[in-house]
């Protein structure tokens, strides 16, 4: 198949360009246009940099006073999703730990005595330093029990052990329930309501 190609045409390079001055002035005009617009123009603080209006061309988002909201779907810091009763939705199925390419999730399972759901994690730790933020754990969870929707990234820590977040630290954010959950959550194994 013949390929649709074209040889790049070079910009004119005549004696005018050769004598430096003309292109230098042209370049200077471009940069001084930026200079004066940025010096005198009023800065639009829209965090969506591409949509800023006005003469000012400054593209800086001056963190931390100005912040860009992470877009929906941003893979941020993990959280363990709580149930309505505050316990983790996690059933310690180890899927997230299995799929994790960085092997940074550590889970130890325990058993509830009374509930319809038997397993729960007694330990659930994520080493955020090892994590490569791929989001596979979120995808792998069959109970929607782990999410990366906190809208923050994992915080800076002063020593490495502090970057390992345990179950208590991870269990946060709004509770989630699904229609399929109602059968089991908050019921005993025989389907009777639990007394708390």
């Amino acid at each position: 198949m013949p390929i649709d190609t074209v040889t790049i045409r070079e910009p004119d390079y005549g004696p005018r360009e050769r004598l430096y001055l003309r292109e230098l002035v042209r370049g200077l005009l471009i940069t001084s246009r930026h200079f004066f617009r940025n010096l005198f123009g009023e800065r639009d603080l829209n965090s969506e940099v591409g949509e800023r209006q006005g003469a000012n061309l400054i593209a800086t988002v001056s963190y931390p006073e100005e912040r860009r909201a992470y877009p929906p779907g941003y893979r941020g810091m993990h959280r363990l999703v709580p149930r309505e009763d505050g316990k983790p939705r996690c059933v310690a199925c180890y899927m997230c730990a299995t799929v994790c390419p960085a092997q940074c999730i550590y889970i130890e399972a325990g058993e509830y005595d009374q509930e319809g759901i038997e397993k729960y994690p007694t330990r659930f730790e994520i080493d955020e330093l090892r994590c490569i933020v791929c989001g596979f754990c979120v995808e792998a969870c069959p109970k929607d029990a782990i999410r990366m929707d906190t809208g923050t990234h994992s915080p800076a820590v002063l020593s490495r052990p502090l970057a390992t977040f345990d179950k208590e630290a991870l269990l946060k954010g709004p509770a989630v329930s699904h229609p399929t959950d109602a059968i089991t959550y908050g019921k005993s194994r025989r389907g009777e309501p639990l007394k708390h």
């Binding site: 909201a69 992470y70 929906p72 929607d144 999410r147 929707d149 709004p174 509770a175 329930s177």
Partner: peptide, 19 residues
């Protein structure tokens, strides 16, 4: 994957369901 994620701002306002 995006199905299991929600907007951070939604999260503050209401429980986000995978509705």
């Amino acid at each position: 994957m995006s199905s299991t994620m929600s907007h951070p701002q939604n999260q503050a306002m209401e429980p986000v369901g995978i509705g």
